[in-house]
């Protein structure tokens, strides 16, 4: 049994495959003759200082004998510019329309193979014929899903004895539908949880305190220096002996930042984070509540408030005192 989508795909492929081997256009004239200003602009942008492209005197001393166009400009002379990629009423134009109408509106070039019969000289007006060589089956790439199209363009200059082939240009492009952005593709997800607390031997006592509704810091048993966050030794005297002490939870904003970015989906952005100086002399980080993030001020009095985000995560935060 064939499902409708693969039937549609097969029908589309049959349509576009018909263009394979089709002689597209012939004798299409370039919009401009090979000319110095476009060459100079190209060489400048590319950082190409080869004097045969821009300096008549230097070029005259080479075997070229005169200024020539950079070989790699071959395709530039036949670019349609703002008119778009394919001449109107051409088979390529028609083929591209099939792709655009079927959702393959994006385009990226993947291969370019050029042969140069001879250099192009100033004043020469090139013309070209184009053949659609191949149209691939549907392929999925890093950018999206679509079809590769290979064209062969022969480029000529009118000479005394008819058209003279000056170069060939084989070009492969991908016409594709971009991958949908993940945010759009995924169904609205449940709000992710905040990052988990990391409990270890050093800070176990702190989290035990939180579980009991107490905000604890450490006090050195040897020199009585208070410290936070929890650490094995005293920062002042290196003693390993300490006691947990419960804070009153009263303090002031010592410093603060507002988090705008990156936008963590678990948080209500933007939000204020305060470095709170507790009245016992230790400083602690926490969300600042009860005041707009842009109204938080240094010195603002705050009070501890435990916030439970989910079944497993309760953390201390600080509520501004005297704010509405």
């Amino acid at each position: 049994m064939t499902d409708p989508i693969s039937q549609d795909k097969a029908a589309f492929l049959a349509v576009v495959k018909k263009y394979e081997g089709m002689h597209d256009v012939s004798g299409v004239l370039a919009l401009d003759p090979v000319n110095g200003p476009m060459i100079r602009h190209w060489a400048e942008a590319m950082g190409d200082t080869n004097p045969v492209y821009t300096d008549p005197e230097a070029a005259a001393r080479t075997h070229f004998g005169e200024v020539v166009a950079p070989a790699a400009m071959l395709q530039v002379w036949i670019m349609r510019g703002m008119q778009g990629g394919a001449p109107a009423n051409s088979a390529t134009g028609e083929l591209y329309k099939h792709f655009t109408d079927n959702g393959f509106g994006s385009v990226v070039a993947t291969n370019c193979e050029q042969e140069y019969v001879r250099p192009l000289r100033l004043g020469e007006l090139v013309q070209y014929d184009q053949l659609i060589e191949t149209v691939s089956e549907e392929k999925t790439t890093g950018l999206g899903t679509g079809h590769f199209i290979t064209t062969l363009t022969n480029i000529y200059v009118d000479g005394e004895s008819g058209r003279e082939l000056v170069g060939t240009h084989r070009f492969r492009i991908l016409r594709y539908t971009p991958h949908k952005k993940k945010a759009k593709a995924a169904p609205p997800a449940e709000r992710p949880l905040r990052p988990r607390k990391v409990v270890n031997k050093d800070n176990q006592a702190f989290w035990d305190g939180v579980a009991a509704g107490k905000l604890l810091f450490q006090k050195c048993l040897d020199c009585a220096t208070p410290r936070f966050p929890f650490a094995p030794g005293c920062n002042k005297c290196a003693s390993l002996e300490w006691d947990p002490v419960e804070s009153t939870g009263k303090g002031v904003v010592y410093s603060h930042v507002t988090m705008h970015y990156p936008k963590f989906p678990a948080f209500d952005m933007p939000y204020a984070v305060g470095l709170i100086e507790l009245e016992e002399g230790v400083r602690m980080l926490g969300n600042v509540l009860g005041v707009a993030h842009d109204r938080v001020r240094i010195g603002m009095p705050v009070e501890l408030e435990f916030v439970t985000h989910d079944a497993e995560l309760t953390v201390p935060a600080f509520r501004a005192v005297g704010e509405n």
């Binding site: 190209w42 942008a45 590319m46 950082g47 190409d48 200082t49 080869n50 950079p70 070989a71 790699a72 400009m73 395709q75 530039v76 670019m79 070039a109 993947t110 370019c112 050029q114």
Partner: peptide
């Protein structure tokens, strides 16, 4: 764009 990649490869060789 690919025309530039092409041009820079050409420039690399003639440099």
């Amino acid at each position: 764009n690919i025309l530039t990649s092409n041009g820079l490869v050409g420039r690399y060789i003639t440099d």
